[in-house]
Computed example of a mutant assay.
Amino acid sequence: MSEAHLSTQRIILASASPRRLELLRQIGISPDVHPAHIDETPFDDEAAADYVIRMAREKAAAVASCYTANEMIISADTSVILDNRILGKPRDAEDFISMFIQLSGCMHEVLSAVSLATDGRHGEMLSSSRVWFRDISEAEILAYWETNEPTDKAGGYGIQGKGALFIEKIEGSYSGIMGLPLYETGQLLQRAGYKL
């Protein structure tokens, strides 16, 4: 495939996340958006890293099946891990409050996997970051829930939003915590011949 073709190859984002779309645009990519619909239930005893990599791969595969081999399909999955447990998106206010009481004053891990499917091949990379929350009062937890920001986010918070008020420090990838690790995404695209 020629360099000219690769640099203009159509990119599909297999996600409805506005944050992932914003991050791709940050590096000069304006993808088409085609959300993936898959079963996101973890397997019994599945390690968190294996789970997020599997989710990213399955999302890419599901969307790739709708296109020719010429498109590049980017997908990602992000999980918040506390004491070796995956904290998903809060089901309701009660679930969110329980989750945030556990996160308050603690360090947790954020795993974010990105997958690239093109020409019948798949590649994945994993980003691991650590996030420290300050102590958060019950009143703050309730007020944060009322903003509606936590409802669609792993671990119930967004680092790019009001959730940043609870974060004392991070080690790792800001974009990975946000939902799409840009370093790893760039590496996968460049290995596939896409010119950034």
Rank of each mutant, 00 (worst) to 15 (best):
A49F: 04
K59H: 05
A93P: 02
G88Q: 13
L13C: 06
T118K: 09
R10F: 08
S7M: 15
T41V: 11
H37T: 11
E22T: 13
L13R: 03
M72E: 06
D83W: 03
S15N: 02
D83E: 14
F133W: 12
G28R: 07
A76G: 06
I101V: 12
G120Y: 06
R121K: 15
W132I: 12
H122K: 09
A62C: 05
A16P: 10
R121M: 13
S104W: 07
G123C: 13
E58F: 00
R19V: 06
S30L: 09
R54T: 00
T118C: 14
L24Y: 06
A117L: 06
R130V: 02
L23H: 04
E109Q: 15
I11L: 07
E40G: 11
S79H: 03
P42V: 02
R91Q: 14
V52P: 02
F100W: 14
E124V: 15
R54K: 03
P90H: 05
A56K: 00
G88S: 15
S128E: 13
E71I: 01
S129V: 00
M72A: 15
R130L: 09
A48F: 01
V131N: 12
D44V: 14
E94D: 14
E58P: 00
M55F: 03
P18M: 10
D95P: 05
L6R: 15
E22H: 11
T68P: 01
S115W: 08
R91A: 14
R121L: 14
L82R: 05
D39M: 10
N84Y: 15
P90M: 09
S15Q: 01
S17C: 05
I101L: 10
I27N: 08
S128A: 13
I97R: 10
P42S: 11
A16L: 08
M99V: 01
H122F: 13
D50S: 12
M55G: 05
E22I: 06
F133L: 09
E109V: 14
R134F: 06
L103P: 00
S98E: 07
S17Q: 02
H34K: 10
L82D: 10
E40T: 08
V33I: 15
D50G: 02
A61V: 04
V33Y: 06
